[in-house]
Simulated assay, not measured.
Amino acid sequence: MIRVEKATKSYQSGKVKVRALNDVSLEVKKGEMAVLSGPSGSGKSTMLNVIGCLTRITGGRLWLADQEVSHFPDHFLAAIRREKIGFIFQQFNLLSGYSTWENVSLPLLPMGISEKERRIRAMKLLEELNLETRADFMANELSGGEQQRAAIARALINDPEIILADEPLSNIDTGHVRMVIDILRELKKKGKTIIVSSHDTQPSMASLVDRTVYFASGEISLQEELGEEL
């Protein structure tokens, strides 16, 4: 289970103090798929980064898998990210000096897994995403849609319990949207917890969503759970 309690996040922008999150509370149960929705600057991406232990909250508390992690030191948070969380970033964050399969396998490096095994695991995911023919291409040689699919494969390489996706369908052509949604469906069947940040939920993805949380000005304006407003 993921639980956020009265979270605030503030940062300084010049002489102005900006509050990206304001007293936000949220709960996502194990195996659920939740969508964080709202316009740019509403706080949804900040919340995704908080849940992913990429950003520390200024105030409030955060639980992952029934363990409070709000005040964990950085090296513990790094271990949680590596072992329990898979990230799909909107900007891909692929390393241009590495091949596609090397980028996909990067999360396995700190685990001491051999290069041969890393490539085997990466190729399996690349095949599922129709990218096996691009395995040895450098990341900067891929199209935008191919980079997005490579980023999805990288997020899944360590078989994480939690998958966090920032606009995962935004740079994929319509022919591959169905493929990504099918992958999300299979992950949900396996009991993975999935949180997606999106300004616009695809109708074809709606059947997978257990709850939608609407953000505005750093606050939750509305929550809907299986058709019920909260």
Rank of each mutant, 00 (worst) to 15 (best):
Q12T: 10
S13F: 00
K15M: 11
K17V: 14
R19C: 15
A20F: 10
S25H: 12
E27H: 01
V28Y: 06
V28K: 04
V28A: 12
K29Q: 05
M33V: 10
S42T: 00
G43I: 05
T46R: 01
N49V: 00
N49H: 13
T55I: 07
G59P: 01
R61F: 01
L62P: 07
W63Q: 09
Q67R: 12
F72V: 00
F72G: 00
P73K: 12
D74Y: 08
I80A: 00
I85K: 07
G86L: 00
G86A: 03
F87E: 06
N93I: 00
L95R: 06
T100K: 10
T100G: 11
S105R: 05
S105W: 04
P110S: 11
G112T: 04
S114N: 07
K116H: 13
R119A: 09
A122W: 01
A122F: 01
L125Q: 07
L126G: 09
L126H: 09
L129D: 10
L129K: 02
E132K: 09
E132L: 06
E132Y: 04
E132V: 06
T133W: 00
M138H: 11
G144E: 03
G145N: 10
Q147P: 03
Q147R: 10
Q147F: 01
A150H: 00
A151M: 01
N171I: 05
G175Y: 05
V177P: 03
I181Q: 07
E186K: 09
K188S: 12
K188L: 05
K192D: 04
K192E: 04
I195H: 11
D200M: 14
D200P: 04
M205G: 08
A206T: 13
S207E: 15
V209A: 14
D210M: 10
R211N: 11
S217M: 08
S217K: 11
S217T: 02
E224K: 10
E225V: 15
E228A: 13
E228H: 11
E228D: 09
E228T: 15
E229L: 12
